[in-house]
Design a binder for these strands. Structure first.
Lengths: 234, 234
DNA sequence: CGGTGGATTGATCACTATCAAGTAGCGTGG
DNA sequence: CCACGCTACTTGATAGTGATCAATCCACCG
């Protein structure tokens, strides 16, 4: 009954947490393909299902009506979601999606209808606990994003973003030892900036500076992490 | 089985959502009193229970190790929690509390051990759904905080904070019509600033400016919302 | 009655937004 | 095949917002 005590040891290090859902692997949920740039769902739509990314990558975009009615509403990328991460959790409270989910590349998701998921969780304690844990991790992830936006300067935000990204893709490979890690960012500078609360020019400038200092290699969306310590400290 | 469709209509307006848990009212969970300034729990402690505020007010404080080892770690108030709101949800994923919860005034909480709560939710569909909804609302709340920190200037952040605060206390009274609303802020300017990603001087300056413009009345921690429209727009 | 923590206000500075220009990659269509 | 237009990215110059440093005031309390 008691969940394993050390469950958090490996997940607490990252600036943002993964959100995974392994127990449902055995269940033959249907899948859906989403083309690059298309929305998996949009804010305001009734919540029918949760989705787990099987392949590809999504961004979730939150919109908030501007205090000034006539001007553009506030909008921000609130997360990037890769393989095995679960989407749609923010919609359970209102029974409607609270954000848009847009594919950054051609992607496939597993569809888990909420009407099926909840009874399943009532039957299987492990699955219930895992769903709760996933939602809790999403709370922590969002809180850490807020912390980042509230306390860190641009350079640290970009560095943290790169490290988090590397760590999430790394999951399984050499997590820390191997020095050079190559990333291929699926999102634009504007997406990164929106996520980090920065303008795209600031993101670009900061990346260039990190390159000049030798912390990373940079070629458009290809990023090589050369000196991890340089990103972590200083 | 299907939760009510319009559940979100009334909760989607606010910059931050309440987190309540009504189904457990009937169950005689024990309570605990926490003095002003004392911690209900601290980050890293094993998660034993969730807590619902019965009276009083808490702040939750998240800490993140600074990228620079020798300098102070990043720390931020990630939420304020009033009556009927639930604390500790961020700890489920790691089985340890991810933040500190500190009482802003003498407070009483209801203690709900997780080892009891999860089986209960497996038995009662309504309770399970409500727990999921509460956690989902917390995700939305944290995401909106991130959105606020990422996109809004100081003035809007402070205005949104005041409006949210008023709305949460108002719950039940005249929600929108009544013009003058009096608030007594339980937290310091530093707390507000930490929550909003601003320095305490900026919070103070912004409040003073809102007073000069006639949007609010101000006397230390007493705030009177004079012109709600002025806070909402412009 | 001094002391302490909280709040206000002022002066200055740094960081990042903004505006602007120019480059590079890429798919489309002449 | 190349010209075109589009989007993404980079880099520079300038301005603005909020941080920082500092002084003062105030209320509460031992």
């Amino acid at each position: 009954m008691e969940p394993s005590i050390d469950a958090g040891a490996s997940t607490r290090r990252a600036p943002t947490l993964h959100v995974r859902f392994s127990d449902t692997d055995a269940i033959p949920f249907p899948t859906r393909t989403v083309e690059r740039g298309d929305a998996l769902y949009c804010a305001g739509e009734p919540l029918r299902s949760l989705y787990t990314v099987q392949s590809g990558c999504f961004k979730t975009v939150a919109t908030f009506p501007s205090s000034d009615d006539d001007s553009a509403p506030h909008t921000q990328v609130t997360g990037f979601h890769f393989e095995n991460e679960t989407l749609g959790l923010d919609g359970i409270c209102t029974n409607r999606h609270e954000s848009d989910a847009v594919a950054l590349e051609a992607s496939v998701v597993r569809i888990m209808p909420v009407g099926i998921l909840e009874p399943l969780c009532r039957e299987y304690a492990g699955m219930q606990h895992e769903l709760l844990a996933i939602m809790s991790a999403e709370i922590v992830r969002a809180s850490r994003l807020a912390l980042m936006l509230g306390t860190m300067p641009a350079r640290e935000r970009v560095a943290a973003f790169l490290l988090d990204f590397a760590e999430r893709l790394d999951a399984g490979a050499t997590s820390s030892g191997g020095h050079p890690v190559d990333l291929l960012l699926p999102m634009t500078r504007a997406d990164i900036g929106s996520y980090l609360g920065l303008e795209l020019e600031t993101v670009s400038r900061t990346l260039s500076k990190l390159q000049r200092e030798g912390a990373i290699g940079l070629n458009g969306r290809q990023v090589r992490i050369v000196d991890r310590a340089m990103l972590e400290h200083h």
